[in-house]
Design a protein around this nucleic acid. Structure first.
Lengths: 392, 392
DNA sequence: AAAACTTAGTTCATTCAATAGACAAACTAA
DNA sequence: TTAGTTTGTCTATTGAATGAACTAAGTTTT
């Protein structure tokens, strides 16, 4: 990192924009007040942002005893970002404006996730979304993709996606070559964490943990307002945290892994054992309404989730834990047993200020997080240069 | 955070100093090369540092075909810092120079840790160390204290130290009032992690986890080169991570907590069960030399440690895990069984690049980390102002 | 040994971004 | 009407990094 005047300007401009995004409509004077920059500095930075069409003036606001302020708006329609959530048996694609509002979405259910077929569908989905982007100064600014597997820290290669049967796939290069747009790949749990942090339940928290409970369990960490990815980008594989030292064998080679007790797969396996054949999460949810035995299956999974969440609480002392992905739809059935375990087992001090909740964005957490990667990447780039390219 | 020219200067000055500390002896020209700052900028910043007596010129270095460079040294004797490691039955105090070299140390074994008595001993120890500080421009610059318990994030109060029987003690205020020096309190595992990061096994790692295995287990996290403390400062209570869902009862109210399987206390308990009465860690170590049964006790604890370390690896994907505190002296007896568990259970990718090792600083990790807090705090303060105060 | 090159460190005019304060514009309140 | 207030712009000033010239002190080439 080089420290110089240009960096100062960049950071201040970014702070001004952030303030407009968060507090819009807002006047130059209020921004100056809020950030501790002088009115002159704010004026000059705001004018640059207006030239870059990233924000705009609207009518005058209310006077508070003097000249009426000119209110500023974030131009959230200045460009659009695409987010893809690659599920174990579906592909969900969204195109959002710069504030994360969904403009269009496509959901494809898949029978097979063979790479050769899947990549074609992904491209199809992206193309449709690109086509549906409204006219705007910057057009489509980038593509983010969340995948259920281990991604290298550069965000280019999927090293391993056990539930898809993929190994070492350079998805970033593949998609960038096709669409000539910046592409960011990340683990689905990280994308979900980021989505909830930006737009969902985690908006007001600095240290939050997103538990993606689907077929397996992955976890995304937002620590001190930014994603923690680990040394090589492989953090969050808490599905394979041992919670039962001599427990069931896991296909990972270990025993007693968390996801054997707390995932969608664990629920389905137990349902099979108790003779509820050929079922899925949705039908089990329906059955639970009248079948106490099925309800109990959910309670068991809830207790399993609670154990892992207890470990997270004692380890991270987070402000918030968000349970997302497929199992979040069983919120009503899981919530009580999770909380009971936490109440009984977690340390008092650590338990005191933690907010345990379910994803706000339902099935969109990861897709919105992925599109937010693209948006953030865009807003931190040299907008003037990009605008000139677009116009040419 | 306010972004302005002063911040740029502060950061660059700090980078120059850091470069001198790490690469001393080094010339102005080399610093300029290394940091990408112009020679003029470096010259001016270095001259300020020399005026502040924090670094100094030494003789000329070797010419590489032109004028010989003037080599610069970090003046590690410009001031001294005190670090205290408050153990469960001992108090270890050190006074170090600004590079962490120990100048003097005091170790007091304690029978009781009753607060009223202990605080007197702490003050006695600090006073002796202050008295033993050599003459220097800045004198004693601060005091750091590591404690075996939960400390609030402000670093002022010990909220709970179960192994000492203390609750809600404002230690910072107490010591600051006595010595009129800046005091920083932190959890012993955090201090240990910081010590190993600065001076020990973790010097070259950005993401490392320090496992403090003593009577209980606490864990300190260095993530992206800085300590992660959690939302309220209570992170790292992994001793109470559940690894055996229906396991033994823990006094924390939960069951199957890690420290029941992997701490010094766990070792002692199991030794008692197998009729080795009235023993401590040191004597068990001696016995293990010839007693296969005792050796096996250590292997069991090693496996317990391995399970928790497996969980850490899968969760954090760290570059390094350092095992410290009391159990580190049993390195030879534990190492193999720890590694066996990790090899058999941890995920391949996460396991690949992790370096598992024991503390380099033996019993000094926490005390040196605590003194390093004080040193860091000092180096980031306004040195000119402090020097003037000292001279007055 | 002299001349030509090299490298180290200083000096100074220039650039660039934030600041402080003056100012005009546009409002409210008395 | 008049005095006071708030908004936003403009300008001179400040402070830090830069680039280039320059001095100092060496080495290499001839």
């Amino acid at each position: 990192m080089t420290w110089n005047q240009q960096l100062v300007k960049m950071k201040n401009k970014s702070r001004v924009l952030q303030t407009i995004i968060e507090q819009s409509p807002i006047s130059r004077a209020d921004i100056s007040q809020h950030l501790g920059l002088t009115k002159g500095t704010v004026s000059s930075l705001v004018n640059e942002l207006i030239n870059e069409k990233i924000c705009s003036e609207t009518g005058p606001g209310k006077s508070s005893g003097g000249r009426r302020p000119v209110m500023l708006l974030f131009n959230e329609k200045a460009g659009y970002a695409i987010g893809i959530d690659l599920g174990v048996n579906y592909i969900l694609g969204v195109i959002t404006d710069l504030s994360g509002n969904i403009v269009d979405e496509i959901l494809k259910h898949m029978n097979s996730m063979k790479y050769e077929e899947t990549i074609l569908v992904i491209k199809e989905v992206i193309q449709s979304l690109v086509d549906s982007a409204p006219d705007s100064p910057y057009g489509v600014v980038g593509i983010g993709i969340g995948v259920p597997g281990i991604v290298n820290k550069e965000g280019s290669n999927i090293l391993l996606a056990p539930n898809l049967g993929w190994t070492d796939i350079n998805l970033k290069a593949e998609i960038e070559a096709e669409f000539r747009l910046p592409v960011i790949i990340d683990n689905e749990a990280n994308a979900g964490a980021y989505g909830e942090k930006r737009f969902g339940a985690g908006k007001n928290y600095e240290n939050l943990i997103y538990v993606s409970a689907g077929i397996g369990i992955g976890v995304g960490f937002i620590l001190q307002n930014s994603l923690y990815r680990g040394a090589e980008g492989f953090s969050g594989e808490m599905g394979h945290m041992v919670i039962d030292i001599d427990g069931k064998e896991c296909r990972c080679g270990s025993r007693g892994c968390w996801e054997l007790y707390a995932s969608e797969q664990a629920l389905l396996n137990q349902a099979k054992n108790s003779k509820h054949l050929n079922l899925n999460l949705e039908s089990l949810l329906d059955m639970a309404e009248e079948d106490e035995e099925v309800k109990d299956l959910f309670r068991q999974i809830g207790r399993g989730l609670g154990i892992g969440i207890n470990n997270i609480i004692n380890t991270f002392n987070p402000e918030q834990i968000i349970i997302g992905n497929r199992l979040a739809i069983a919120k009503e059935l899981l919530s009580e047993s999770i909380m009971e375990v936490v109440r009984n087992r977690s340390l008092g001090f650590n338990q005191e200020n933690v907010n345990i909740t379910f994803a706000d964005l339902s099935i969109y957490s990861a897709a919105l997080g992925a599109s937010a990667y693209a948006t953030e990447n865009f807003l931190n780039s040299d907008l003037e240069e990009r605008l000139n390219k677009q116009d040419a």
